[in-house]
Simulated scan of single mutants.
Amino acid sequence: MRQSPLKVAAVSLLAGSVLALAACGKGAGGGTTPDPNANPDASVEAVAAFYPLQFVTKRVGGAHVNVAGLTAPGVEPHDLELSPRQVADMTGAGLVVYLGGFQPAVDDAVAGMDKAKTFDVATATPLVDHHLPAEGEDADHDHDALDPHVWLDPTRLAAIADQVAAKLGELDPAHAADYTTGAAQLRTELTALDTEFATGLQTCQRKELVTSHAAFGYLADRYGLNQIAITGITPEGEPSPGRIAEVAKYAKEHGVTTIFFETLVNPAVAETLAKEVGAQAKVLDPIEGLAKDSTGDYFSVMRGNLTALKEALGCG
């Protein structure tokens, strides 16, 4: 069947936009981003690979732990490239908190470090395969593209916090009880957030969550939503024309009103698809990092996501 000129134009623009995305996704910093609330008398100097891990380590560690970040605000973390200074900062840290498989440069640097001074948060909660099959690929095709975005399920982030507390307690036994208390307090807040999401998304008119890339699998699994992503786990992936047409058809058939894009990537893909299907394009934040001018934190961004979801999905 011959495609309409509008669909052909949309496909061309979408594909070109994703190619541009790949060119701007990488970033390298001079050194780590210092802890804005650093304590000169802290017991542990830690380095966290990207924002959610920096957030949880600081909340658990409190004043006893300074937590510097490898990924600067406003930088998309998937393809972080480390400078020699950042590698030196990691080597000199008392603890490096990272997510194995998410940032290859970080994995390479950690491989040469003392294992007692590193913590892979993927060991605290099992990663799930939310792989988007390529065109013509069997849905159960075997591969190793596990979804790293575990922090978007508050219950999984609570499990990570518990293990961060245990690791800090091993490194700094004198304050182990404080780390346990910090993790417990964070768990209480995350449990409340989980309840807010479960209640807020319980009576929605739609369950279809259409996103620019497959970052929201854990959130969808937790709250009974159906994630439909234009591209796969990493935002640099280029969707095929067949995939674009497939998502457009699905969105029209299910009355999708919103196509979501992310804060740290170009919105052109989502905006073009939204125009094609008669929907809006809006932000849904995967919280891989904060924007440069952001004054929020994990909780405020998650609650902003909940508001956006309730509006998009017609939740009562």
Score class of each variant (00 low, 15 high):
H130P: 06
L82V: 02
F102D: 01
A109T: 00
G62N: 11
D89W: 04
E81F: 04
G74S: 00
Q86T: 11
G94Q: 04
M113P: 01
G101M: 08
L80H: 03
D129A: 13
V106Q: 00
A139D: 12
V128D: 12
V121W: 04
H141I: 15
T123I: 06
D89K: 09
H141F: 15
T123M: 13
H64L: 10
L80Y: 03
T91N: 11
V67M: 05
H78N: 02
D138P: 12
P104K: 15
F102V: 04
P133G: 13
A68M: 02
A134N: 12
L82R: 02
L146E: 08
A145V: 03
D107A: 04
G112T: 10
D120K: 11
P84I: 06
P104E: 14
A134H: 15
P133Q: 13
A111T: 04
L80G: 03
G94T: 09
V121C: 05
P104R: 11
G136T: 11
P104W: 07
T71H: 01
E81K: 14
V65Q: 02
V121H: 09
L127H: 11
A72H: 12
Y98I: 07
H143I: 07
D142C: 08
L132I: 13
T118P: 07
L82S: 04
N66Y: 02
G74A: 05
V128R: 15
D142Y: 11
H64D: 12
D144K: 14
L99N: 10
N66G: 04
V96H: 02
H130Q: 09
Y98C: 08
D79T: 08
T118W: 08
V87F: 05
D147N: 10
P77N: 05
V110W: 01
V65T: 06
M113K: 03
A122F: 11
L132P: 06
H130N: 14
L80N: 02
A139E: 15
K115D: 10
Y98V: 06
T71W: 01
V110T: 00
D140T: 12
D144L: 12
D107C: 04
A124I: 13
D79P: 02
D138V: 13
